[in-house]
């Protein structure tokens, strides 16, 4: 079986994996990273979105072997020193989650969106999140949260 080395939320793992093992199952079943859920089998819902080498990917549509040598950040690795990432805080402040199942992927997609567009318009936010489905919120508060998260992240950059 292929042997892969992946760093997940700052910890490096070496695992022997079947070629068909999906990255999301490596995370969930082997590494105990159950913060990243699975919502579909066609890469439509985005619930499993993680950062792979700094870019958002749907971890149900990446093989573990393809992630060999890569750095993965999941929702569990976002915060620092026990405090939440500004985007996580913004989701809380704006009531941008209800059941919370889409939330890890949505937060990841939102952070990814801001890499290119630090001050996104409502339109840009909606387009940027097109690959992540939420069934609870109707998205209004998610849009507000991303705007708030963007402001806070912008300020964090300015003040640092």
């Amino acid at each position: 079986m292929p042997r892969v080395t992946v760093t997940v939320d700052g910890i490096t793992y070496q695992e022997e994996v079947e070629p068909r093992l999906l990255l999301v199952h490596l995370l969930r079943e082997r590494l105990g990273k159950t913060g990243t859920p699975v919502g579909c089998d066609t890469s439509n819902c985005g619930a499993c979105t993680v950062m792979l080498d700094g870019k958002s990917v749907k971890s149900c549509s990446v093989l573990a072997v393809q992630a060999d040598g890569s750095d993965v950040v999941t929702i569990e690795g976002l915060g620092a020193n026990g405090s939440m990432h500004p985007m996580q805080r913004a989701f809380h402040e704006e009531h941008a989650l209800q059941c919370g199942y889409c939330t890890p992927g949505m937060v990841m997609a939102a952070i990814d969106l801001l890499r290119d567009t630090p001050e996104p318009s409502e339109e840009a936010i909606r387009q940027g999140l097109e690959g992540n489905l939420c069934r609870c919120t109707g998205y209004c508060n998610i849009v507000r949260a991303v705007r708030r998260g963007a402001q806070e992240m912008g300020q964090a950059v300015k003040s640092s």
């Binding site: 990273k33 999941t74 939440m84 009531h95 939330t103």
Partner: peptide
Amino acid sequence: KRKEDARLLTGRTQWTDN
């Protein structure tokens, strides 16, 4: 603001599949 959020936002969830 909701008490439920912190766990859900940081992936410390208890979905049945977990």
